[in-house]
């Protein structure tokens, strides 16, 4: 039997891909003003900075908790703004629901919103609303509209057309098709995305503190600027702990919403224990 000749295409592709990765990388590495000795010293410097934060100074734990709470609040209200306003926009951007002349502009609007990081939006809001949690909330809310709107439309487009057809053939109006055919399929996933966005928004609102827009970022930057490493360590640890707890709870709830039953993870089990009726 004749042996086939090894094709050359995969090898060519491999070279093209390697070049496409290596060339920009070299360009970037050479372009950055980073000397070799600074690079070599970096791990040691990072380690000593981390070490200098321990043991943390818990002196102002009350203030830190208050600021973390503020960040969570900003994220929460921002998420609610994003969720409420993105829902109709998501329907308008879904190609299986809205006509093309609507989905086009709405999609453009959503991706234009997404292009601005929250921090840039917050800076643009300063002249109108001043520095503070209010501006941060608006920035996060606006950005969330962009991301949630896109995700919502994708969930809606992923729904099964069968039920819609069934309602249409039974004489249902367009609105009834949406209400009883599309929404029941899509809502669990959409709500799960809201919760996920809330998790992301907590980080975003913590970050907005660094320009003075309220929240825990403010505190961290201040501590670092005044070289109070132990206090910065406390801020960092509390932030990580609070966000971790919210992450775990949120992902357990998301799983519950999407699958309709609680998961097998430890957090999910603990949560389901809280609501289970007593065994008879």
């Amino acid at each position: 039997m004749n042996r086939p000749i090894a094709p050359t295409a995969p090898r060519v592709i491999r070279w093209v891909v390697t070049t496409a990765i290596v060339v920009p990388f070299v360009w970037a590495a050479l372009g950055l003003d980073v000397s070799l000795d600074r690079l070599v010293e970096a791990p040691g410097a990072i380690w000593s900075r981390v070490a200098s934060m321990f043991p943390p100074d818990w002196g102002d734990i009350s203030e830190i908790l208050g600021k973390v709470l503020e960040s969570v609040n900003v994220a929460w209200v921002g998420t609610i703004i994003g969720a409420t306003l993105s829902l109709p926009l998501g329907y308008l951007a879904a190609t299986n629901i809205s006509p093309r002349w609507v989905t086009g502009p709405v999609r453009g609007l959503l991706s234009a919103i997404r292009a601005f990081p929250e921090l840039v939006l917050a800076i643009m809001f300063i002249p109108a609303f001043g520095l503070g949690p209010f501006a941060a909330t608006l920035a996060i809310g606006l950005h969330s509209i962009g991301t949630l709107g896109k995700l919502t439309s994708e969930v809606l487009e992923g729904t099964d057309a069968g039920p819609v057809e069934a309602i249409a053939s039974a004489g249902g109006t367009k609105l009834q098709q949406l209400r009883f055919g599309v929404s029941p399929q899509a809502m669990p996933n959409i709500i799960a995305y809201w919760l996920y966005r809330f998790e992301i928004n907590i980080r975003a609102s913590a970050v907005l503190g660094v320009i003075g827009a309220g929240g825990v970022g403010d505190l961290l930057i201040g501590r670092l600027r005044f070289r109070e490493w132990e206090k910065a360590g406390a801020v960092l640890i509390i932030t990580v702990a609070v966000v971790l707890i919210i992450d775990f709870a949120s992902s357990a709830i998301r799983r519950r919403i999407i699958t309709g039953h609680s998961g097998t993870g430890r957090v999910s089990k603990a949560l389901s224990l809280l609501v289970r009726p007593r065994a008879t």
């Binding site: 039997m1 004749n2 042996r3 086939p4 090894a6």
Partner: peptide
Amino acid sequence: ALQALERVGIVEKAY
């Protein structure tokens, strides 16, 4: 590897 493929008679599918 090619010999093994020949033994089971599908060397033409190697790539």
